[in-house]
Design a protein around this nucleic acid. Structure first.
Lengths: 163, 163
DNA sequence: AGTATATAGTTCATTTATGTATAATCAATA
DNA sequence: TATTGATTATACATAAATGAACTATATACT
């Protein structure tokens, strides 16, 4: 189990040295950091047998979450939280593997349309059972009410960014 | 403001294509991913004037959170959530900048003791006001009760990992 | 004591991510 | 319709992170 107690002890020490340090906000940020690290590492481990890593998984799932299985690179960057240069690299790899296809848009020829191929969709549906298992495992300490509460609070916190 | 609505729409589409997909766990994981990205980017921006990035900030703060301002590389790796090879690189940089000092332990000569220098402590205390401001800003949408609730729920979720 | 096993940390090769510059296209407007 | 200013995506150089192999020291076992 991931133990947060050492982090709390460090926050106490920090507070004793620098009394103005906001303990609770810092604890939240550190918790999110820890959780993200676990999520990232575990997703990487689950995807490895499929020859993918976590960012590639994200790219594929963002496209799968689109009604027509396709997005532009900039939409993908936004959806997956990747820098655009990184999206180019990741999608190039996925194209080379045959999971997505590139096509230049007709309406705006600056744009590129990326679409999941049938092989890409088949791949996604082959790894989704493992992902579903992972997601349940990662949230199993929270009942459905707590999950809903947590979602509300995280959304609220997210609303404080970039304004 | 960071908008989570597109993510929710994508989850709906995913659910329609693959009904077994667990909507709420996936939403939580994606929220944490988004939040971490914001935290990471904003911390990088705040630290840039001090010639540091987010991981370097973390290293320094983990040491500052220790009573004697010192930790071993392996403790640092654990505390900051970095791989040990990365800790070597980051701490070497911070040593070169004069913010921390390396010394080999006396009791166990395999171990290395990393300690904040007076310059390192002075640097930390010079950027902490900006960090405090950032932390308040990042959590300003949550009142103190909500922050406490969120902390409880995140800790509970974190407990589901690595068991 | 002597040998195996484990641990701490670093090094190095490779992979992954970022920032900046560039090319192509579009939109507005003078 | 030419010109200017955005926008979209990519290329390229640089930086950061990872995994695997390696060195040195400590611990356990017989």
């Amino acid at each position: 189990m991931s133990d947060f107690a050492p982090t709390e002890a460090r926050l106490q020490v920090t507070l004793s040295k620098y009394p103005g340090f906001p303990r609770d906000p810092a604890a939240l940020v550190r918790l999110i950091k820890h959780l993200y690290k676990e999520i990232h590492d575990e997703a990487n481990a689950v995807m490895k047998p499929y020859g993918l890593n976590h960012p590639e998984y994200n790219i594929l799932m963002m496209m799968y979450g689109s009604p027509d299985n396709s997005l532009n690179p900039s939409q993908l960057a936004d959806a997956a939280g990747e820098k655009s240069a990184n999206v180019t690299r990741l999608t190039t790899q996925l194209c080379e593997k045959g999971y997505i296809a590139r096509a230049s848009s007709e309406d705006d020829r600056r744009k590129v349309t990326l679409t999941l191929t049938p092989e890409g969709i088949a791949l996604i549906e082959s790894f989704l059972p493992a992902i579903v298992t992972l997601l349940f495992r990662q949230t199993r300490k929270l009942d459905t009410t707590e999950q809903a509460q947590l979602e509300v609070l995280l959304k609220k916190m997210l609303a404080g960014y970039g304004e």
